[in-house]
């Protein structure tokens, strides 16, 4: 399944590269492999990432190639994983710790909030801690309690962190590589519902940093006139389906903006679009209060209130504890709910 393609939108690639069709989880593994080969300082660490290849297989086969010093099965301790990763980074390594589920990241919360995000500031720019913490997040895989939350707001609310949420195999490959090379600490939230949802051609070879995306800017995926729809990760997948159906059924023409980086937030791209369309719908999997949709809404109020033809619509989960698997599909925004939100905004 090799081909030579250009994937400028998802990856910023301008050069042709050899690719093969990969799922998101295979793209993660491929990106790991390339970065481990490229830079001796890169190391993978976490629970079951070695001989088991990660519980989702995001590190499959890497320990065989790079050995146990660089693909490290750690003790079962999130604080220890992130705390030692901070130390490893201080002393010159570029650790890429995996936390098995974002629902267990809270056991490392203070190391992320109090140290990872503050170290450069505390040392007045002297010491960077380039750690990329990967964690699967979100609902939709019929898992147990604590395995389905979307709590990106915790990390967005911590100044100093970069929070990346990719939408596709190509984008995951590109942003994971860019994150590992970044001097900033990155929380890399992987929408696990998309892990094996679809395949895309993903580069099988390494590229220079200038071929990787800048972390930060939003991406305009479709240009339309009636409404601006913003989403990311798993919800972007559902949103595109909703937008396609609405175009077909109601002749609604939407601009679709993806936020591969939810923090720092690129509100400029969103505001520019809303100035043209006058309407905005933000779709997030997380519950409503203080979600990124609220911040986007506030920034539109700051910058483009006089252009608005309708209130900014937030299509979100309800403000309740993330339910168990029997209720998860009802909890997450689904395609009909996204469509309803868009129609309501266009018809306002």
């Amino acid at each position: 399944m090799c081909g030579v393609i250009t994937m400028a939108k998802a990856t910023q690639l301008t050069q042709d590269v050899e690719t093969s069709e990969m799922t998101m989880v295979e793209a993660i593994c491929e990106a790991h492999d390339q970065e481990l080969a490229r830079d001796d300082r890169v190391m993978i660490m976490g629970e079951d990432v070695g001989w088991d290849g990660g519980i989702f297989r995001a590190t499959d086969g890497l320990v065989e190639t790079y050995g146990e010093d660089r693909v490290v099965d750690t003790p079962l301790a999130e604080t220890g994983i992130i705390g030692t990763a901070v130390g490893l980074a201080i002393n010159g390594m570029r650790p890429v710790p995996e936390l098995q589920f974002s629902g267990f990241s809270y056991q490392a919360f203070h190391q992320i909030e109090s140290h990872l995000a503050r170290f450069r500031k505390r040392t007045q720019g002297g010491m960077n801690v380039p750690v990329t913490i990967r964690m699967p997040y979100g609902a939709g895989v019929r898992a147990l309690e604590h395995h389905s939350e979307s709590r990106e707001t915790y990390w967005i609310h911590t100044p100093g962190l970069t929070v990346v949420i990719p939408r596709s195999p190509q984008q995951t490959w590109a942003y994971l590589k860019a994150s590992i090379r970044s001097e900033d600490p990155v929380v890399f939230l992987e929408p696990k519902a998309l892990y094996r949802k679809f395949r895309e051609p993903v580069p099988e070879e390494d590229v220079d940093t200038d071929q990787l995306p800048d972390i930060g800017p939003a991406q305009v995926l479709e240009e339309g006139e009636d409404v601006t729809v913003v989403a990311f990760g798993h919800m972007l997948y559902r949103t595109r389906q909703a937008v396609a159906e609405l175009e077909e059924e109601h002749d609604i023409s939407a601009t679709v903006i993806d936020l591969p980086t939810v923090s720092p937030l690129d509100s400029e791209t969103i505001v520019d679009s809303v100035e043209d369309t006058g309407r905005c719908v933000v779709v997030q999997e997380a519950h409503r209060t203080l979600g990124i949709a609220s911040e986007i809404s506030a920034r539109i109020m700051d910058e483009a209130v006089l252009h608005l033809e309708a209130p900014v619509k937030r299509v979100t989960a309800p403000d309740v504890q993330t339910p168990l698997l029997a209720r998860e599909q009802a909890y997450m925004p689904d395609v009909p709910r996204i469509k309803e939100g868009i129609v309501e905004t266009v018809d306002f």
Binding site: G80, G83, V86, G87, A89, I90, N91, G92, P95, H115
Partner: peptide, 10 residues
């Protein structure tokens, strides 16, 4: 103390 272990490990 976790940083110290990480630094020493590096």
């Amino acid at each position: 103390t976790c940083h110290a272990t990480g630094i020493a490990w590096a």
